[in-house]
Design a protein around this nucleic acid. Structure first.
Lengths: 198, 198
DNA sequence: TGTACATCAGTGAACGCGCGTTCACTGATGTAC
DNA sequence: TGTACATCAGTGAACGCGCGTTCACTGATGTAC
């Protein structure tokens, strides 16, 4: 049994992921350096390659956690707004999305910025995490538009998510059109309430 | 008069910009290499630095052209749809935006991807190009919502643009949720027609 | 027109640095007997 | 329990490469007289 060894290995993975997360949070994914991480985690550079295939795999691990936390926040918003109208629930989710993106902007951006190695092979958990987000949007949409076919509903879900994502993205990016958070909320409410008028 | 010299210099600038544009179009802004460009333009690496301060300035020049072409396409759509309803005009513009992004995806992405040197100093032409885009959206919005204050209208313009941008962005990015172009059009029409209901 | 000189675009080898990844080695841990 | 041996996480110097930028030099163009 390599139990003890496995444990140490797992600990190192955790330490590396935490360190990477902290560095991405502070300076963005493009400023990650293997040597910095080794120093942070108290190991040698080479040890990183015992725990992960390469730096990309490490960043993917961080992204996995980020997706999990984002999903949890959105789910909490779904739960908290359970009694409300479909529109209110969509707005609550979107604001949770905004709040997460705003509070974790560089980690959130890393979800989209990471350049994958050529062959567009998106890992399974990535698609799954997105499907999870979409599924929460699907419920209110089904309630609002029961006459739509499943394909139409799927398209509507995508359109709603994309719109909110666009508003959050450009709202937070002050290069393009940075805007006070309160205005981002107003845009979300404006768009969603109109999009969901019966 | 350094006329002849100036002319050569301007020619070199043009050649470099064209070469950079071609390379970004083919492989994305992150794969630009000074040596490749020099070879393409038939000059030495050092000559690049006579024509431009640095590689970032060269990419900015390409982005300037891209913005211009994008603006022209959108304006053509505005002109072509001049007689139609406000909604129809907004959809026409958005489809022009989609078509441009789709046909020039890497150049279009370079507009947003280029990492600026720290101090968020966005060049003036950049803001101006965006203002130009926004101004075309502002007309139908003013027509649709004359009762809104100018601030509300500005927010509505931003919200519309951001929504369409989000739909186009995620629609074209097959990593996230790549979708056939026809579906992107449907999402745009769906969102805009609902957002502009009176 | 001709000659000497100044300027400056153009050259491309070399600089300098960053950085992911490897690899020969070490030392702790576990196993066999 | 004690000894010899095997394994493998961990080490960090070194590899290897990429790449933006510089700089001493050249040669064409333009100017002065």
């Amino acid at each position: 049994m390599a139990t003890k060894a496995e444990q140490r290995r797992a600990e190192l993975r955790d330490k590396l992921v935490s360190a990477a997360e902290a560095r991405i949070r502070a300076a963005g994914v493009s400023s990650l350096r293997a040597r910095d991480l080794a120093k942070d985690a108290g190991c040698a550079v080479g040890a990183i390659y015992n725990a992960f295939d390469d730096m990309t795999a490490l960043v993917m691990a961080v992204n996995g956690l980020t997706f999990q936390r984002l999903g949890a926040d959105v789910e909490a918003a779904v739960a908290a707004s359970a009694g409300g109208s479909a529109t209110a629930r969509l707005i609550a989710m979107s604001e949770a999305y905004l709040d997460f993106a705003s509070a974790n902007s560089r980690l959130w951006r890393a979800l989209f910025d990471l350049e994958l190695p050529e062959d567009g092979a998106v890992p399974e958990w990535y698609r799954a995490a997105l499907a999870r987000l979409f599924s929460h949007i699907a419920d209110p949409v089904a309630e609002l538009f029961p006459e739509q076919s499943p394909e139409e509903q799927a398209l509507t879900v995508r359109a709603l998510f994309s719109s909110v994502h666009g508003i959050v993205l450009l709202g937070l990016e002050n290069r393009i059109s940075g805007v006070p958070p309160q205005d981002i909320r107003r845009m979300i409410a404006l768009v969603l309430s109109r999009l969901t008028v019966r």
